[in-house]
Design a protein around this nucleic acid. Sequence first.
DNA 1: CATTTCACCTGGTGGC
DNA 2: TGCCACCAGGTGAAAT
Length: 275
Amino acid sequence: MPELPEVETVASGVNERTRGDRIRSVWLSRYKEPFKNPPTEMAEALTGQRIERVHRVGKHIVFDLGESSAHPASTQWIVHLGMTGRLLVSAADIPLPPHTHAVLSLTSGRELRFVDPRRFGRLALHPISDAQPFCGPGHEPLTISTADFRALFRNRRLPIKAALLNQKLLHGVGNIYADESLFHAGIRPTRMAGRLTRDRLDRLRAALQSILRKAIELGGSSVSDYVDADGVAGFFQLEHRVYLRTGLPCLACGTPIRRILLAGRGTHYCPHCQR
DNA sequence: CATTTCACCTGGTGGC
DNA sequence: TGCCACCAGGTGAAAT
């Protein structure tokens, strides 16, 4: 489900609804996959904390937690949605959906729920005391400079799409927005990253940034089951030019969109518009 | 070291 | 209706 625009939409929605609220109690499922810390430790660390702020770093949702508004946040709670994760702010009397793995009961009476059928999502504690505030593995696509963007791909011998998906280079870009930005930049996904000209890399950065901004405006892409913190779908899927459009005519030139496997992911492109 | 492949999960869809 | 193959927004470990 979730790439940068979807995670941004969820994080800002949860921020608006829970900022300043306090965690009264915590329930965690018996599955081991979602939890990077022992569940009892996580429940204990969260209970009683005030939610100071919720924001996005890469594909991670970061909760700044504190004992009180007077003290700086001492712990962060990190939520990664994986493929099918949802973070919902619900009234407590709404039945729990199947595959609910965490319920944070808030003093306002509402609940923050983490739901994830495939269990690829992850919940983790990040203590700030001995380290720095959580910062993702790579550069932020929306703010990276042209010089840094060019430098990311220099001397790399892998297809540009595989490089875009590598979170240690840029974090937040996933399969949809990699395919869409390469289409808008007119670049074949299989082109070697290190062989692209400065010009084409600049065009790719511009395409990526404008697409991510537009997708955030539209609340993200709802392909099968993505929804925001209120359970509402996004609209950017209506703007897709290549993603999941295999065999359909390119909206620019009419050539059938082609699907290949690259970096283990379905990859969609127009063989005429993308060279 | 850099790059590629695969396992991890459930659920939806479409063919037979 | 059932069964099966295939596909899906992600990542990290293992293999190359």
